[in-house]
Design a protein around this nucleic acid. Structure first.
Length: 617
DNA sequence: CGCGTTTGACCGGCGC
DNA sequence: GCGCCGGTCAAACGCG
């Protein structure tokens, strides 16, 4: 096969529609067979040997978050099949909700009622299937609201007609329901306001805390030998050990363990030059081999050689685990990759054993020397499922859209470190984590610390039924600090891992090492000050992460997310969400609304961004 | 012609 | 020691 002539590629998929499905593919309206990329069918039929000559499109990933109510009717359906709609997806979705007639079924009977409600503007979206939860109990509770006045406008005394009576009763009941939901809506709005303010405060506290930690690490671990480099902007959360590096150069160095492994190869000198050009002599010692590479983090860790040698083994293990810790996200996507906010360059592709679908390797190219890698591979059984595995920490500031996934990998790795390495029984801790914080882990997330490299796997392909979505009480607070329209347009794959990662991180601190601690899932949201062996006195951060832990603990988090979004957007239903809290909702929007990132946009050795529009930081 | 992708070759780790 | 396998490199290639 001639080079460059095509061959195996999962990147050659023309992008058809959005890549994220919260609904089961078995629902025809959500994922009709004809929406499946024909090449996937071809792949399924012919295996990986199928040649695909279609050049990868330059279309940015259309990674949407198609929250769909059961009764979002044909509008939503149309949007699913109209990825090229000129409207931003959030607007489209909002439009859908705005257009939803709460009383559509009764429209002909109670037109006047609808008009009245339109005046409020609060009740157009129940966040639930109309009629599902409304449960109009005709003939009951007629006196719950003061409707007699309006009733008289309908009932002029000619009530011998039974149908009129029934209609009148229904009208009254509906009005009562409207009033009730008005109140509920106001309550939820207040809640949203309250929690949003709390979130903002927490975020500010957390930023201050991170700054304190930065300075703390600098003073503690670099005392005397610190260069007076300026503070390098960091991602929202780094691996703990990585965060200990402090200055930019060593930061890159320690972060680049996998990079260093790669650079160990003598024939990689060309690549070294590339990196050195960007980062000075940061990677020079990598050329000396593995042993030298292992020395480097120690230098980072501290100047105390004795202490260093005493802990060398632990440090090496830790480093290896950092390097190997991964976060895997399974999501339905027709796109070649999911939009995670970073710039990636494909550097390889392999047929992995056990899966005829090729595995693509990507490297973060937002900054030279960034060690972050990701692997993208389609599921052999269901080729609509895209598995993206992240490894490493970014060594550069990230756009908001990218912090989600980045902090996820960081947090997950940190969790795995503290949970599986600081304890004598990592597996037990992992199981414990799974059982406690992720009671839904069998379907939503799994933690595998016994694997060659500990991996947190988020399975976003298994969606609860809409009925379950709405009927199941949401036990945990789902935070939405951002405007709902942003959330509605969020990249769930960027949001969920962030949340889970934070949750896992928090859990690792609290339960991974403190098994005796009372860790009831329902109380996660209130558990904010677990005892920490790691000496991290960041109680504020704990607040932050415990809140996200609560989210991750929800058995139907994605469903809850969808329900919460819809409820917030169009007026909340009582069962949709209980309250709001805090999550750093960095979103990856589609191309029409900016904030998009795509992969495969960067040439080798260059960082030219050709298809991104990060908001300027 | 520049840039991004492709893909065979190469390397290290690991199991036998 | 050998082979397998995952991961990476980098020259070749195609496209705009």
């Amino acid at each position: 096969m001639a080079k460059g002539s095509g061959g195996l590629s999962i990147d050659s998929d023309p992008i058809a529609t959005s890549g994220f499905f919260l609904h089961k593919p078995t629902v025809p309206a959500s994922f009709p067979e004809e929406n499946i990329n024909p090449k996937w069918k071809q792949l399924a039929a012919t295996g990986a040997r199928q040649s695909m000559d279609v050049k990868a499109t330059r279309s940015p990933p259309n990674f949407q978050f198609p929250v769909k109510l059961i009764n979002t009717n044909e509008h939503d359906h149309d949007h699913d099949h109209d990825p090229d709609s000129s409207l931003p997806s959030d607007n489209r979705r909002r439009t859908v909700i705005d257009e939803m007639d709460f009383f559509a079924d009764k429209k002909h009977d109670i037109d006047r009622m609808t008009i009245i409600n339109n005046g409020t503007g609060d009740l157009k979206d129940s966040g639930s299937p109309a009629g599902l939860e409304l449960n109009v109990n005709t003939g009951l509770n007629l006196l719950t609201t003061n409707t007699s006045g309006e009733q008289s406008t309908v009932d002029d005394g000619l009530s011998s007609n039974m149908e009129d009576k029934r209609a009148k009763s229904e009208l009254a009941v509906l009005r009562a329901e409207v009033e009730r939901m008005k109140v509920e809506n106001l309550r939820l709005k207040d809640m949203l306001t309250h929690v949003t303010s709390n979130y903002n405060a927490l975020q500010m506290d957390l930023v201050a805390l991170m700054q304190d930690q930065n300075s703390h690490h600098k003073n503690e671990q670099h005392d005397g030998k610190n260069k007076d480099n300026g503070i390098v902007p960091r991602q929202f959360m780094d691996l703990g050990l990585v965060a200990a590096t402090g200055d930019g150069d060593t930061d890159d160095l320690s972060l680049s363990t996998s990079e260093g492994r790669r650079r160990d190869r003598s024939r990689s000198s060309g690549n070294n030059a590339e990196n050195n050009n960007e980062d000075g002599t940061v990677f020079e010692q990598d050329k000396k081999g593995t042993d030298q590479r292992e020395e480097s983090p120690d230098q980072v860790w501290g100047s105390n050689k004795d202490a260093r040698f005493n802990s060398k083994k632990t440090v090496d293990q830790t480093e290896a685990t950092i390097r190997k810790a991964r976060v895997s996200v399974r999501a339905r996507s027709e796109d070649a990759t999911i939009s995670d906010g970073c710039q990636w360059r494909k550097y390889g592709q392999k047929i992995a054993k056990g899966n005829p679908c090729p595995r693509a390797y990507y490297r973060c190219t937002m900054a030279a020397g960034c060690p972050v890698r990701k692997q993208v591979q389609r599921c052999a059984e269901d080729r609509t499922i895209l598995t993206t595995t992240y490894e490493g920490n970014h060594s550069h500031p990230l756009p908001p859209a990218a912090t989600a996934m980045a902090s996820t990998t960081s947090s997950a790795a940190r969790m795995l470190l503290s949970g599986s390495m600081s304890s004598t029984d990592g597996q037990m801790n992992s199981n414990f984590l799974t059982r406690t914080i992720l009671p839904c882990s069998s379907s939503l997330a799994t933690i595998s610390a016994s694997a060659p490299f500990p991996t947190v796997t988020l399975d976003l392909t298994q969606n609860p039924s809409p009925l379950q979505l709405l009927k199941q009480p949401i036990q945990f607070q789902v935070p939405f600090p951002n405007p709902p329209q942003n959330l509605a347009n969020a990249s769930a794959a960027a949001l969920l891992p962030q949340i889970l990662g934070q949750a896992l991180y928090n859990q690792s601190k609290s339960s991974g090492l403190q098994m005796s601690q009372d860790m009831q899932p329902n109380r996660l949201g209130h558990q904010s000050q677990p005892a920490l062996q790691q000496g991290q006195q960041n109680s504020l951060a704990d607040n932050f992460t415990t809140a996200t832990a609560a989210i991750a603990a929800d058995p139907n988090f994605t469903a809850a997310l969808a329900a919460a979004i819809t409820s917030i957007i169009g007026g909340a239903h009582q069962n949709s969400i209980n309250s709001i809290n805090n999550v750093q909702t960095t979103t990856s929007n589609n191309n029409s609304s900016g904030n998009i990132t795509t992969s495969n946009n960067n040439s080798y050795g260059h960082n030219k961004i050709t298809n991104s529009s990060f908001p300027s930081d």
